[in-house]
Design a protein around this nucleic acid. Structure first.
Length: 424
RNA sequence: GUGGCCGUAGCUCAAUGGCAGAGCACCUGACUGUGGAUCAGGUGGUUGGGGGUUCAAAUCCCCUCGGCCACCCCA
């Protein structure tokens, strides 16, 4: 075995061609969906000053879960753990010249210094979609619709993946009605956020610990059963009406226990989960109305979500939806019959490329069986042979690797035949 | 960062203190102009790495690296 003397950095992944093909596949679908809704692609730097994150995000996200290091001048540099602060700065910097509301999307790498686990690494790719400069529930619904449309596009059904929706202002009102004072509500949000992952007894102990009375705890339990609670919120009524109009209502469901961890969400929040609950959140997002102001701009409302590449990949695998992608981009392999016909093969390949085809030539003369096997293993759909018989008659033999069908045609017809077979 | 489980051939896994193995994969041949199927043969290992105990360590102990699980947090 070849000894790997220098391993990958903990929590990072090598992207071999088959892995890269899947990443590219995800990217292509993200792009198609985002552009269908008119979103523009953008990106920020991968390196940011630590100060960008100081006033925002979750405190913990930066203090304990970011890669931070000094550069040669001593400035503290951060490998970006999320994109929203960069987005906020970019908007604030050009606030006066940007056309608002803006719809932007991005797909790129992010880093978090965490303990790796299934669906969670230290280096991952994330799809970010944001709409900045509008504050309507209808735009909240549009963001959820972008996520739902992605799920539909990659074959995930509403029975398999659902976007769970809640609203922090609604929950704020409900908590107030339970007599929970404003200064306690942030802690209670965290409590609600952890409801699903704790045993009832432990959860109640935690609730009592942050100062809730038994009556208030019972009140929370009652809230969690109120799946019709959204009807008391004008924002959510408009949200679900818009989702219906956008054709994604079947992917959405009101869920009173969804609250999201990040502190900067102010209104509607949502996260996508697989139906079986086997994986962590597939995407998460919501409305943030104060973010741009935090980096020095005029307050501008926004709504957005992020989806990581690792969990969505696991979910696609779980439902048998991970695509079989071709290993090689080549549509045809030209064999090299022997040393005397080597250049004939090169000429044939060039002729096919000039006709717009993607063609690989076997690198040297070898047994034809070996060359066919090479094409088979790379998933190249058509194999061409130009040996003594073919050269004498100015013809080419082609074999369709999927069906086993084989024909010999005049050389000038070879390109059309490859094109026809490569589509199957 | 805390606690737990686990690292053996490219992959999935055996061997529980006594000669490191199997299946699949890969290579070669049967088949000198044809992949997948079958048969035969073959390559491949410092048992993640380092140290210790022992006549003897994949096996027991310590350290370390990595993966997984639960916290924490979150994509």
């Amino acid at each position: 075995m070849a000894k790997v003397r220098i391993p990958t950095v903990k929590g990072t992944r090598d992207f071999y061609p088959e892995d890269m093909a899947l990443r590219r596949w995800l990217y292509d679908h993200m792009r198609a969906v985002a552009e269908a809704f008119g979103y523009q692609e953008y990106d920020g730097p991968f390196l940011e000053p630590l100060a960008l994150y100081a006033a925002k995000s979750g405190e913990e996200l930066v203090k304990e879960q970011a890669f931070v290091f000094p550069d040669r001048s001593g400035e503290l540099i951060t490998l970006r753990p999320e994109l929203t602060p960069s987005l906020a700065r970019m908007v604030a910097q050009r606030q006066k010249q940007l056309v608002l509301p803006l719809r932007w999307w991005s797909f790129g790498p992010f880093w978090r210094y965490e303990r790796p686990q299934r669906g969670r690494g230290r280096e991952f790719f994330q799809w970010n979609v944001d709409l900045v400069g509008a504050a309507t529930p209808e735009t909240d619904a549009e963001l959820a619709a972008v996520g739902a449309t992605f799920f539909r596009r990659v074959g995930l059904q509403p029975q398999q993946v659902r976007i769970l929706v809640n609203n922090r202002r609604l929950m704020d009102t409900q908590l107030a009605a339970l007599g929970i004072p404003a200064e306690q509500r942030k802690a209670v949000f965290r409590l609600i956020d952890r409801k699903e992952k704790m045993q009832p007894a432990a959860w109640e102990a935690y609730a009592a610990d942050i100062g809730l009375s038994p009556a208030q705890i019972q009140g929370l339990y009652a809230l969690f059963e109120r799946h019709d609670l959204w009807q008391t919120s004008d924002e959510l009524r408009r949200f679900f009406a818009a989702a219906e109009a956008l054709g994604v209502a079947d992917y959405l469901r009101y869920e009173p226990t969804v609250i999201r961890g990040l502190d900067y969400y102010t209104g509607t929040v949502f996260e996508a989960r697989d139906h079986a609950g086997r994986f962590r959140a597939i995407l998460g997002g919501g409305r943030y109305d104060n973010l741009v102001a935090a980096v020095g701009g005029e307050p501008v409302p926004g709504v957005g979500f992020a989806m990581g590449d690792m969990v969505i990949t696991l979910v696609l695998e779980a439902y048998g939806l991970r695509p079989d992608l071709p290993l090689s981009p080549a549509q045809a392999l030209v064999t090299v019959f022997d040393a005397d016909h080597w250049l004939d093969s090169l000429r044939l390949a060039q002729r096919l490329r000039a006709a717009g085809l993607r063609v690989v030539v076997y690198p040297q003369p070898a047994r034809l069986g070996k060359q066919f096997k090479y094409a088979h293993r790379l998933g190249i759909p058509v194999v061409l042979v130009r040996g003594p018989d073919e050269v004498a008659a100015d013809r080419v033999t082609l074999k369709h690797m999927g069906t086993g069908e084989q024909v010999q045609v005049p050389t000038e017809q070879a390109a059309d035949r490859v094109r026809q077979w490569a589509l199957d």
